[in-house]
Design a protein around this nucleic acid. Structure first.
Lengths: 194, 194
DNA sequence: CGGGGTCTTGATCTCAATCAACCAATGTGG
DNA sequence: CCACATTGGTTGATTGAGATCAAGACCCCG
C-alpha cells in the first residue's frame, strides 16, 4: 500500500496538454498530482467550467452517460489514475462526499472572479498550492499559462502578465524564473498580502 | 401521483426570506418552485456560493455531516419539500445524476460572471426562468432583489439598477411594474438581444 | 407616522480592457 | 544547421465600463 505498485495505468500529461475531450469515451480518473481545468464547449469556443485538484475525481459523468461532458486540460504537469478500474460501484457515502466537495469547490471558484486582479490571481495560486501530492510539499508552484489564468479569473492575458510582475515587484509574491519556467513560492502565497 | 396529496410538510418562503442557516440541523430539501441562493459564511460576511432551481436538491450535505454547510435564501417566492423523508438511502444512480447536475450548474453560474453587465443580468434571468414548476409556464418572472442580482453577477447594485432600466428602455427586456413588484416577460428573455 | 430597507439617479474616478507592437522559446522541414 | 512559423509572454498608450460616493425617492412595517 505504501509504495506504488508499478503505477499500472497511470497517465502523465504535460502543462497545457489535453487529458480528454468532451464527447469522447473513457474511464473516470482520479487526479494524483497537478491541477486540471475543465471546459465546456459553448457556442463561442471553449469556456472555463471548473477546476480539479489532487484527490478529486474527474469525468465521473461517464459512469452515467458513457461520454465525457467536459474537456479536461492540464494547468500544470499532471498525473492521473483510473478511478474504479473494475466494474465496482462507488458507495453512496463516497458519492455524497464528492457532491459536498463539488459544492464547496463551486464557492471557491466563484471567489476567483471577484475582487481586484491581484486578489484573484493570488487566490487562484493559493488554491492550486493548497493541496499537493500527499507527503512531499512542493515549495514552489509552476505557473499555469497566462491564457489559462486569464480564463479562470475573467481577466485579460495582458492584465495577468502585468499583475504578476507587479505582485512580484512589491514583494507580495516571490517569483522565480521568467517565461514558461516561472514559479512562485508557496510560502509567499500563504501569507496575506501586505 | 398527479395531484399533490395535501402537500404534507412542504414549506413556502417569501422572496428574500431565509430557508435555513449554515451550521444548523435539518433535512435535505427539494426545490419545487422558485430560485434559491446558497451562501457560504466567509471571513467578510456571507458570500455567494451557488444557485438552485426547481427540481434541485439542497442541503444534501446534512446526510453526511448532520449540519447545513451553506445558508439558503429565497431569491423569489419558493416552495420546497423534504427530500428522503424516511430513512431511505438515495441510489448511486441518483447521486451520480446530482453530481453531474452540480458540475453543469457550475459552468452556468460561472458564465453569470463574465461579459458585460447587460449580458450577465440577462443570462441570470434567463437561467431563472428556464425551469419553472412543472406544467404551468410562468409568463412573467418576478425579479430578485437588486442586492442579490449584484452579488451573483459581481456587479454593484447601482449598476444593476441602471442596466435593467437601460435594457428595458432599448426593448431588449420587457419590464413590468416598478420597485419591489417588478417583473420581466419570459419571452423577452428567450430571444437573443438585438 | 417615523424609520429602515430597497431602489433610483447623478457626478466623478479608476481599474482593467483593448489595440498594437515587440521579444523569447520551441518546433519544423529543407 | 539555419530560415521560418507558431505559440507564449511582455510592454506601452489609450479608452471605457462599471465602481464609488452622495443624495434623494419609494415602500412596507411596526
Amino acid at each position: 500500500m505504501k509504495d506504488d505498485p508499478g503505477a499500472s495505468a497511470n497517465r502523465c500529461i504535460a502543462r497545457g496538454g489535453e487529458i480528454y475531450a468532451a464527447g469522447t469515451e473513457g474511464p473516470a480518473w482520479r487526479v494524483v498530482a497537478g491541477t486540471v481545468r475543465l471546459d465546456e464547449a459553448g457556442p463561442e469556443g471553449r469556456q472555463f467550467a471548473g477546476l480539479a485538484l489532487p484527490g478529486d475525481v474527474i469525468g465521473a459523468e461517464t459512469l452515467l452517460f458513457g461520454r465525457y461532458s467536459f474537456t479536461a486540460l492540464a494547468l500544470s504537469a499532471c498525473e492521473i489514475e483510473p478511478w474504479l478500474a473494475g466494474h465496482e460501484q462507488p458507495s453512496g457515502e463516497t458519492l455524497l462526499g464528492m457532491l459536498a466537495t463539488a459544492e464547496r469547490r463551486m464557492a471557491q471558484i466563484l471567489s476567483l472572479r471577484s475582487g481586484t486582479a491581484g486578489e484573484r490571481i493570488r487566490r487562484l495560486l493559493a488554491f492550486m498550492s493548497a493541496r499537493v501530492a500527499d507527503g512531499r510539499r512542493a515549495v514552489r508552484l509552476a505557473l499555469p499559462r497566462l491564457r489559462d489564468i486569464a480564463d479562470i479569473t475573467d481577466l485579460s492575458v495582458e492584465t495577468v502578465s502585468r499583475t504578476i510582475t507587479h505582485l512580484g515587484a512589491e514583494g507580495s509574491l516571490e517569483v522565480y524564473g521568467r517565461y514558461r519556467t516561472r514559479q512562485v513560492s508557496a510560502a509567499s502565497l500563504r501569507r496575506p498580502k501586505p
